[in-house]
Design a protein around this nucleic acid. Structure first.
Lengths: 205, 205
DNA sequence: AATTAAATGGCAGTGACTGACAAATTCCCC
DNA sequence: GGGGAATTTGTCAGTCACTGCCATTTAATT
């Protein structure tokens, strides 16, 4: 039974990937808002109703990858040593994402998607909300790590949340700059430089 | 003529305020998503079509106040001394907002609205996007200030954007905590504590 | 009172999204 | 390979946010 559902889920994911691939092309060509769900469904070869059985909304076609990003960041953060300053853990949490960017094709693709996101206020809003949700997950992980460290001082959960938010502010600033200037190979450098400049005095280097 | 348009704009603002007041009651009572524009329009005593002549979207009924918040923060930031460290300017930029919170009634009202925002994913997304736009305006102001200071070193625009984002991360974390714990009189203290903890080492205290 | 400008309402239409139901497809066991 | 169950799919109707268009009402000006 588990192999059956496994196969079904694999098939489902394959369809989802195909929808994403076709829809992204349409979004890049015509823009997000100007592409209707009917067009996407027709291009894929299914009814609009079936499209909504694979994605709960048009937004999710673009933003589902943020779920995977959140997973990657979470496992990256969890793998950092417990005695490391939090700011260093947050900084190195981004390392796997940066590695992904060494591939030119992937990098250009992500840049194009970011341009699609920036081109639609509605999509940008949903994007920021997903990032917010990821930040909350990471904050919980940071809290758990601090609790398991139990070195007397209990960290303020507000400060933890703000630190995660600050790290993402560095990420967001670097992304926006790189996408605006179309200069994606400097991304890792920009992010590192910004996170170094923003390191809280309380987090010893 | 200018007096005529002035009167008209005043009347328009009065109608907008009435719509906001009535709609907020409905949102608090039934939730944002569960309240239709038709209901709001009927409660105010106008057609749906006229509602959309006063607000471009249902979101704006709740989020228009962020425009004023942005203006206040911008003027607050602009009034800070040029030789002040940027983190201090950002921290004190929030002072007028905190003063507004000394009024119990206003504070409770804002907390209720924040709960409405948190209750709708769609509205939360739009809220975060508005905050993002405010941050961009503040970054531009910070850039202008740095340019007018022209003390040799040109600051990195990415770092400036990230600093503004970090300050808003402190604000956001404090707001979320206060709304979740229903403990709004500690807000100023939480914000100050968090911004102190997040102060970048590069910004001397 | 007549003219003109603005606000309003009604209506039809679009696009995202949902629930319900029936037809088609696939899966599984014999 | 066939029959029955589970799953997927398409169709249809409906809701809700939002827009353009046009006729009507309301208000301001002279």
């Amino acid at each position: 039974m588990s192999t059956v559902t496994g196969l079904r889920q694999a098939s489902r994911r394959a369809v989802q990937s195909q929808i994403v691939a076709i829809a992204e092309d349409l979004f890049v060509a015509k823009g997000f808002e100007e592409t209707t769900v009917d067009e996407i469904a027709a291009a894929v070869g299914m009814s609009q109703r079936s499209f909504f059985r694979y994605f709960p909304s048009k937004d999710d076609v673009v933003l589902d990858r943020l779920t995977r990003l959140g997973d990657d960041l979470l496992s990256g953060l969890a793998s950092r040593p417990l005695d490391e300053p939090e700011w260093d853990s947050l900084q190195h949490m981004f390392d796997p994402v940066l590695e992904r960017f060494t591939d030119d094709e992937l990098r250009e693709h992500d840049a194009a998607m970011q341009r699609v996101i920036d081109g639609s206020a509605r999509l940008l809003a949903a994007y920021l909300q997903r990032l917010d949700a990821v930040q909350q997950r990471l904050t919980d992980e940071l809290q758990t790590r601090a609790d398991s460290r139990d070195s007397g001082s209990t960290p303020d959960p507000i400060v933890l949340r703000a630190k995660v938010g600050a790290a993402f502010a560095c990420l967001h600033a670097a992304i926006c700059h790189v996408v605006a200037r179309d200069d994606p190979d400097q991304f890792a450098h920009h992010l590192h430089h910004t996170m170094t400049a923003l390191r809280p005095a309380a987090d010893a280097s």
